[in-house]
Nucleic acid binder design. Structure first.
Lengths: 105, 105
DNA sequence: TATCGATGCCTCGTTATACTATGTATGTCA
DNA sequence: TGACATACATAGTATAACGAGGCATCGATA
């Protein structure tokens, strides 16, 4: 899998993960791999800096929780993040539609 | 349009353009814009270096032609380029399918 | 005939972003 | 107790599209 394809899509993927429930970094890496049937294998060096960046932009917010045994840093999406998610989903749809048009699909 | 989305997809788009007939750089920029209804606007600083790179990799080959009035540098796809195009199309399909899966489409 | 926009090719330096490599700590199980 | 999975973090690197600029030609028009 060409990693360049990921560029510009990581943000929408990550925000989408928070759509249902709070998640923590390590768990997301595993879940991504599962959900995409191995197509995506997010690296820690990719995900953690990205989570910090999304938090700086107020799209997500974090809290520590240890009630499940291990100490984990959970993130949940904010209202601003929900708006951004909608925009980014639109952007992806438009892009993939245009590219599919060029490729003749 | 987030330009990062383009990364990793420019090669397949350009190779696809040569599927039918030889093309020249400036004409491709105009045609891209038209085909994607304005979604893609390839810049000269993007396209020309990429064409040179594809030629170095033997995916395309160039020839000058002036028979149509203006002197233009045309490119056509090679057999190797055709193989690469098939691979890249597969890669795109797999990627977009996986991402659509995550986004719930 | 002078000018100006469109056509046509090119390249250097910048910027954005995913990754590699590495470090640290804790829990689990043989 | 030693190995491995879990869990978070960051400094440096590689790469790819782009911005900005240069140069030349052609057609239209003032």
């Amino acid at each position: 899998m060409n990693k360049e394809l990921l560029k510009g899509t990581t943000e929408v993927m990550i925000l989408k993960m928070f759509d249902k429930e709070p998640m923590y970094g390590y768990g997301m890496i595993k879940k991504f791999e599962l959900m995409s049937k191995g197509t995506f294998k997010f690296k820690e060096g990719t995900l953690y800096p990205l989570l910090h960046s999304l938090e700086r932009k107020k799209y997500i917010e974090s809290f520590w929780d240890s009630s499940d045994g291990r100490r984990r840093k959970y993130y949940r999406i904010t209202d601003l993040g929900c708006k951004q998610l909608v925009d980014k989903e639109k952007e992806w749809l438009e892009f993939s539609k245009a590219l599919n048009g060029i490729l003749g699909y």
